[in-house]
């Protein structure tokens, strides 16, 4: 399906996936981060422009109102179906 893609493109995709994986790790880790861990996060954020961009896109969704609302809906539905 995408076999026409250049190796360079594939490499960029892999790099972005790696950055996204790191961003998600941080997003999870920051829930319990103390000041020191937070410092390391800021270093990571500053290490490459793509880090900031990818992290911002992930955080915007994960901390958005629709995600919170979806969790509330899901919990209400499960409670209801559990009787």
């Amino acid at each position: 399906m995408t076999d026409a893609q250049s190796p360079r493109r594939a490499q960029a995709d892999a790099a972005r996936a790696e950055t996204m994986d790191q961003a998600l790790t941080w997003l999870i880790e920051l829930d319990i981060a103390d000041a020191e861990t937070h410092g390391r996060f800021l270093e990571w954020l500053d290490a490459d422009p793509s880090h900031r961009e990818v992290f911002a896109s992930a955080e915007a969704v994960w901390h958005s109102q629709p995600v919170f609302d979806a969790a509330a809906l899901l919990a209400a539905r499960k409670k209801h179906s559990a009787g």
């Binding site: 995600v67 609302d69 979806a70 969790a71 809906l73 899901l74 499960k78």
Partner: peptide, 26 residues
Amino acid sequence: RLLESLSASLETLTPRQQKIFTLSRL
């Protein structure tokens, strides 16, 4: 629209994943 699509996708998760999601987000 995002809420609707999310709800549909979350239904496909395992019960444990759903539990983790509500514990985390809610």
